[in-house]
Design a protein around this nucleic acid. Structure first.
Lengths: 197, 197
DNA sequence: TAAATATTTGGACACTTGTCAAGATCTTAG
DNA sequence: CTAAGATCTTGACAAGTGTCCAAATATTTA
């Protein structure tokens, strides 16, 4: 990470970042991530190698940047307006809709990256960080019995589990079905709150 | 993966595999995985580069081999003798004891690899594959309400979550405490079976 | 034991990687 | 509009990567 992605960028820098992002996403629809080289990304985007390294440490860093941008598109800020017990549903709802909207691109990518399970791993890590903020110690129920970090990670894991089952493992099914699975797995912890919704 | 690790190796081959394993583990106690080069592993183990590439595709492949060997040391075969409902406890029990036995080595490694979260990711993937075998469709309860792959992954995730909290995130606590957290998180799905144990 | 077969070794090769510093170009405040 | 300052481009570099092949060594088979 050569720059702070949360800071504003100049128009020129944004153009360059967008070009590398597009080059990577384009490359990913044709081959696996491991096969992609920095040279190739520079050829696709018509930038010299040194420019790439101006922005990113390596191709993994670019991937993290891309996940970061996509992650930002999942708007979870509204959870502040909702009851704590319903934040889990907000997370599921927003993430489901977001992934569904990008499903065709996603399918093209995983077609060539079925075995590169770490590809989406860092997307998961980043989302996990945000979810952990949603379920801080003051909000988590059962905080006397189980450490709140465990609760937060467990929520995050479980939401991502059902989403990955639905979108990554080629399973069809309605949003309602998927939600039902989620409710079942977390039944013990907050059955009431989810069912009430 | 240049060879089938499940097949028997000759004495000479085993000596070579052991040497590269030792070299990698030794290197990992001094620097991060990313900083380690194949050249370095060959110098440490006094083997030529070509020999390394005889056995492994790259350093990631060696890491997978190491996880594979460690994974084999966690004996889960006994689950066949137990009631299906208690297999989850067997998994927790064996994995806890195993990690505890290797805690000092583990600590030295994560000291230099705190941010390389993918380091243990593939260990997790491999263990996940074994856990999925433990909870096949014929065994999982609630199989009519939630797909069994989801149940199996959820079990695996949750066991690994509490173990990672305990051993990777620097939290102290007894095995009993850790088990209690696990029971709580999975309470809805099999509270009875675990409590009965 | 000796010949046949397989594996290991060392060096050479083409390629990728990440860094650097000097120069070119774009931005923006005055 | 212009000059200072920021940003981008460029080619060269040292080091790492993965493959190949022929010679050396080890293992198996007759």
């Amino acid at each position: 990470m050569k720059r702070d992605w949360t800071k504003k960028t100049t128009r020129g820098a944004q153009r360059t970042l967008d070009a590398f992002t597009a080059a990577m996403l384009d490359a990913l629809t044709g081959k696996s991530f491991e096969q992609i080289t920095v040279n190739e990304l520079c050829e696709k985007s018509n930038y010299p190698r040194a420019t790439f390294y101006n922005y990113f440490d390596d191709k993994y860093d670019l991937l993290h940047y891309i996940w970061h941008c996509l992650n930002r598109q999942i708007r979870l800020e509204q959870y502040e307006e909702t009851e704590p017990e319903q934040r889990l549903f907000v997370l599921f709802d927003r993430a489901y809709d977001f992934i569904e909207a990008h499903q065709s691109t996603l399918n093209r990518i995983i077609k060539h990256n079925a075995k590169e399970s770490f590809l989406l791993f860092h997307f998961r890590v980043q989302l996990g960080d945000r979810v952990r903020e949603m379920f801080d110690p003051n909000i988590c129920r059962y905080r006397d019995q189980v450490p709140h970090e465990i609760i937060a990670d467990h929520y995050c894991n479980t939401v991502l589990l059902v989403l990955e089952w639905r979108f990554l493992h080629g399973n069809d099914g309605s949003k309602e079905d998927t939600l039902r699975y989620l409710e079942h797995l977390l039944g013990a912890l907050n059955a009431k709150s989810l069912h009430e919704f």
